[in-house]
């Protein structure tokens, strides 16, 4: 969604300050009489910007709302398949599924879930990982590769999943020290095969290919 961003750039940030000053003075005569003409113009512009800002805020909120709405759809999983799918295998990796914290609700009731693939989910964050512990009894495979918001802080919660046998934490741009993190995760989950970024892969992928602005409220697509 480039649209709201584009609109955002139309407004130089310094106007924000000016606008407010003038707004508050509206109705009060400013001492600088000789600036009156200018003031009226600024007043006009600031009023104008007020709308622009409103629009920006509206777009921002709508973006957020959309993700929330999409996540309601996930609750159908439960009504359609019932809470227990024996030996379920769950995939949510199709070019960035919108699943977020609330969308996880339905997955968490799948008590027999053995394998969960949440690769490249732009909204999946550390908060989500901290909620996976109800799957501790069954979950053996968890694939998180390419999730732009997951950091070592969320990975630390995976010790709640002692039955994990395979964990893919490769290509997590928000993890600050990937190799160290991998070692610590391996120590924390001694029975689990941890797939991380191997050195060769790290070298092949130039820095410009790394996703940018990954922690932003608006995903890049």
């Amino acid at each position: 969604m480039a649209a709201p961003r584009a609109v955002l750039r139309l407004v130089p940030p310094k106007w924000n300050v000016g606008r407010r000053g003038f707004r508050d003075l509206s109705g009060v005569v400013t001492p600088e009489r000789n600036l009156r003409k200018k003031r009226t113009l600024l007043q006009f512009l600031s009023d104008h910007f007020y709308e622009v800002e409103f629009l920006r805020e509206y777009l921002l909120q709508r973006q957020i709302q959309k993700v929330h709405l999409d996540n309601r759809a996930y609750s159908h999983i439960e009504s359609t398949y019932g809470p227990d799918i024996a030996g379920a295998y769950f995939v949510l990796k199709h070019g960035g599924a919108v699943i977020n914290y609330h969308g996880l609700d339905s997955l968490l009731s799948l008590k027999e879930l053995q394998s969960l693939s949440l690769q490249r989910c732009p909204h999946l964050d550390d908060w989500c990982l901290s909620r996976l512990y109800p799957l501790a009894g069954s979950l053996q495979e968890l694939l998180l590769a390419g999730c732009p918001r997951i950091s070592e802080r969320g990975l630390a919660c995976l010790h709640h999943l002692p039955n994990l046998r395979k964990l893919d934490i490769s290509d997590l741009p928000a993890v600050e020290f990937p190799s160290l993190t991998q070692i610590l995760v391996e120590e924390m989950l001694p029975n689990c095969e941890v797939i991380g970024t191997d050195w060769a892969q790290g070298l092949r992928q130039g820095p410009e290919e790394q996703p940018q602005d990954t922690a932003g409220p608006i995903p890049a697509e």
């Binding site: 914290y101 990982l129 630390a156 919660c157």
Partner: peptide, 23 residues
């Protein structure tokens, strides 16, 4: 805090990086 970037969103500004450790 979970939704901090909805509550404290400011247009043009980078998101708040709370660095929450859910430990």
């Amino acid at each position: 805090l979970r939704n901090i970037n909805e509550h404290l969103a400011v247009a043009d500004a980078p998101p708040v990086d709370l660095q929450f450790n859910p430990s």
